[in-house]
Amino acid sequence: MKNHEQALEKDRAHTSMLERYFEGALWNSRWVVMVAVIASLITAFGIFYMTAVDVYYTMAHLVHYAQLDDEARSHLKAQTVAHVVGSVDGFLLGTIMLIFALGLYELFISKIDQAHESGASKILYINSLDDLKDKLAKVIVMILIVMFFEQAIFLKPTAPLELLYYSLAIMMIGLALYLSHKAYEH
Results as ranks from 00 to 15, higher is better:
Leu104Tyr: 00
Lys133Leu: 10
Phe154Arg: 09
Leu62Gly: 00
Ser121Glu: 13
Ser29Ile: 03
His83Tyr: 14
Met1Phe: 15
Met59Asp: 07
Asn127Trp: 06
Thr43Asp: 05
Tyr184Leu: 13
Leu107Asp: 10
Ser29Cys: 03
Lys122Ala: 09
Phe48Asp: 00
Gly46His: 00
His181Phe: 15
Leu155Ser: 09
Leu26Met: 12
His186Leu: 10
Pro160Arg: 09
Ser128Cys: 02
Ile170Asp: 13
Leu164Gln: 11
Lys10Leu: 06
Asp134Arg: 00
Lys182Tyr: 12
Ile143Tyr: 14
Arg20Tyr: 14
Gln114Arg: 12
Phe22Met: 11
Val85Arg: 00
Val37Thr: 06
Arg30Leu: 03
His75Ala: 13
Val63Gly: 04
Ile99Phe: 02
Met17Thr: 15
Thr15Tyr: 12
Tyr165Pro: 03
Tyr178Thr: 10
Gly174Phe: 15
Thr58Ala: 01
His186Asn: 13
Asn3Lys: 10
Gly86Glu: 10
Gln67Val: 10
Tyr166Asn: 04
Ala120His: 12
Ile140Pro: 02
Ser40Tyr: 04
Leu164Tyr: 14
Leu92Arg: 00
Lys156Gln: 13
Lys138Gly: 12
Leu62Met: 11
Leu62Arg: 04
Ile140Lys: 04
Leu179Arg: 12
His64Met: 07
Leu41Ala: 02
Asn28Thr: 09
Val53Gly: 01
Leu161Arg: 12
Ala78His: 12
Leu41His: 04
Val146Trp: 01
Leu18Trp: 11
Glu9Gly: 05
Leu98Ala: 09
Gln151Glu: 14
Ile38Gly: 00
Glu9His: 08
Ile145Asn: 08
Leu168His: 11
Lys122Ser: 11
Glu106Leu: 02
Leu163Asn: 11
Asp54Pro: 01
Tyr125Pro: 05
Phe48Ile: 03
Ile96His: 00
Ala115Glu: 12
Lys111Tyr: 00
Arg73Leu: 05
Leu136Ile: 02
Ile99Asp: 05
Leu175Thr: 15
Val84Trp: 08
Ile173Cys: 04
Arg12Gln: 13
Ala72Asp: 13
Ile47Ala: 00
Ser40Trp: 03
Glu19Lys: 05
Ile173Tyr: 12
Phe149Arg: 08
Leu124Val: 14
Ile170Arg: 01
Asn3Trp: 09
Pro160His: 07
Asp69Thr: 01
Phe149Ser: 13
Asp130Pro: 07
Ser118Glu: 11
Leu18Ala: 10
Thr43Gly: 01
Ala7Gly: 07
Asp130Tyr: 09
Val35Asn: 03
Ala7Met: 14
His181Glu: 11
Lys77Val: 01
Phe48Met: 02
Phe148Gln: 10
Ser87Glu: 15
Gly94Ser: 02
Phe91Val: 03
Gln151Cys: 08
Val32Trp: 07
